[in-house]
Every structure is written in structure tokens, then in C-alpha cells.
Simulated assay, not measured.
Amino acid sequence: MTSTGAPPFLIGEAMVGGYGGADILNGCTIAVEKGEIAVIVGPNGAGKSTAMKAMFGMLDLRTGGVRLGGEDITRLRPQERVAKGMAFVPQTENVFPSMTVEENLEMGAFLRRDDFSPTMEQVYSLFPVLKDKRRQPAGELSGGQRQQVAVGRALMTEPSVLLLDEPTAGVSPIVMDELFDRIIDVARTGVTVLMVEQNARQALEIADRGYVLVQGANRFTGSGKELLTDPEVRSTFLGG
């Protein structure tokens, strides 16, 4: 619950589940308010990406549930969650390499029946390099530019929630900073952002809320600032 008593805009509550027999998630709860940036961090194998996939419906939960805007969406399939306003950007294979940048963005608007050209202009203003390269196949772009295409394509659905699985994986520190700046810009438009990140320190610096998962359970929860200054979080998860 928030301080006003209202439920969070998006919450995966007491989630338990995994693939096959073993549970990877062991009761973790992830919540984020409208227009906030929430970040899930933790060691490898902690269940970070699994928690995000569970919130997008890519994993059946044994117990626990997911609610969006107060509505129980636990049983909805991923494509049904897209129709409810969720967009998910996987870590890898998140662009169509043989299609141009513009065609990739158009693919993001496949559910829409309205004129999506204003949204495309918004994406181009957010990521100017994509406008310059809009006729180029996405497979020819740098890693950071491909990530921009993937995020841009997700934004073409006009989501209320943007889920990002390790958006800065494999990019240079300069590109990482730029991507984080753009993620801040997205949140300022009112989009709720939930992301999993290996670059924990940098991600927590832009986070309104942070979750440290260990073995599929919440170890620490707080604002990005609180987690950055917590001595135990610093020594155990942020390298001192």
C-alpha cells in the first residue's frame, strides 16, 4: 500500500513460481507507482529477470498475483497484458535485424488502429539517432542503438508500463548513461518503468524505488537513495 492507502499502480505480490519443478521466486513482492522508475537488482541467479517475466505473464505463478491499476491480471497471457498497457523489452533478440529502424517501430504499433505517426515523432525526438538511421536495417546498428530501437518499438504501443530486462547489458558506460537519461525522460511522460539491471549502482541512482532480490525473495527494499547509502547493500551488492 502507498502512504495514501491506495494500492500501487503495478504490483507483483508474494510471487512464488519457476520453470518446471523448482521455484525460482520465493515470495518476492515488486511494486511501482505511476510514473516512477523501479529497479530490481541482486546477484546472478537471484530471480530478477524471472520476477519481471512473471509480472508480464511469461511465467505461471504457483501462488501470489499481479495487479495493474487495481485489476487482477494474474491469469492474463502476455499479449493480453500488452492490450492492458504493458510493454516488455527483453535483453536479447529484441529487434528485427533485417527490417529497417522505421519498420521495427511500425511493428510496435501492430495493435493500434489510430494514426501512430505522432508517437513515432515522439520516439524520434527521444532518440534522434534513430531518425537519422530510420532507413537502415536494425541489424547494422550498434548495441546501444539497437536497444534504443527496442525501447522505441515498445513505446509505440503507448504503454502505461514499460518493463526493461537489463537495457544496458553489453553497452559502453557513455551509452549506458545516455540510455538511463532517456529512461528518465520516458518516466517523466507518466509511463511507469520497471527494469532489471546488472549495473546496480548506476540504476539505483535514477530509481525512485529499488528492490534487492536474493534467491527469489526480497532482501532489501527502499528508495534508490536509501539503498545506495545502506552500508550492508553497499558492501554486499555494490562493491563497497
Rank of each mutant, 00 (worst) to 15 (best):
P8N: 14
V41Y: 10
E178N: 14
G210V: 11
N199E: 08
T29V: 06
P173F: 12
T92K: 15
L204T: 01
F127S: 08
G21H: 12
R77L: 11
L164N: 02
D185M: 02
A200I: 07
R75L: 12
V82M: 00
P118I: 01
R188A: 14
D185S: 12
M15N: 08
P231A: 11
I183G: 05
R77N: 02
E178V: 09
A207C: 06
P7Q: 10
R234K: 09
R112F: 11
L228C: 05
K131M: 08
E158C: 13
D177Y: 13
A14D: 11
D181P: 13
A154I: 01
L59D: 08
G47A: 09
G224H: 03
T4K: 13
P97T: 09
L155R: 08
A203K: 06
I73L: 12
E93N: 14
T189C: 02
L162Y: 12
G45S: 13
A169Q: 14
V32G: 09
A51V: 14
V171R: 04
L61C: 06
G47L: 05
V186Q: 08
N218H: 01
M1N: 12
I174L: 12
E226N: 09
L227H: 09
E226I: 06
I24D: 02
F237Q: 01
A169R: 11
G18H: 03
K48D: 07
M55S: 02
V171L: 04
G57T: 11
V214Q: 04
R62V: 11
Q148D: 00
K34G: 08
V66D: 00
V95S: 03
G216W: 02
I174T: 08
R75S: 15
S223R: 01
I73N: 15
G57E: 09
L61E: 09
A207D: 05
F9T: 10
V39G: 00
N199C: 03
I37Y: 07
A150T: 01
L68S: 10
G21W: 06
G152A: 00
P167Q: 04
A150C: 04
N26G: 03
Y211H: 13
V196I: 14
S125F: 07
G239H: 01
D60W: 06
M99R: 09
S172I: 06
T192F: 07
T63Y: 12
G139H: 05
T221H: 07
I37F: 03
E140P: 00
E121Q: 14
T100W: 04
L59P: 03
Q136H: 15
F56W: 07
F237H: 12
R146M: 10
T189E: 07
P78A: 01
Q148P: 01
A154H: 05
T168H: 04
A109C: 01
S125M: 05
Q79Y: 15
Y19W: 06
G108K: 03
M195P: 07
S160K: 14
K133L: 15
S172C: 08
E106Q: 14
L76F: 12
M195S: 07
G17N: 11
G20L: 08
D115V: 00
D23S: 10
Y211F: 15
M176K: 15
N199A: 10
M15D: 00
R62K: 15
T229N: 13
G64T: 04
S49V: 04
Q147R: 15
K131I: 00
E80S: 06
G190Y: 03
A14S: 13
A207S: 08
T189V: 06
L130C: 06
L25Q: 10
I11R: 14
E166K: 15
P97F: 10
P159C: 04
Q136C: 14
Q215A: 08
G17Y: 05
A150P: 13
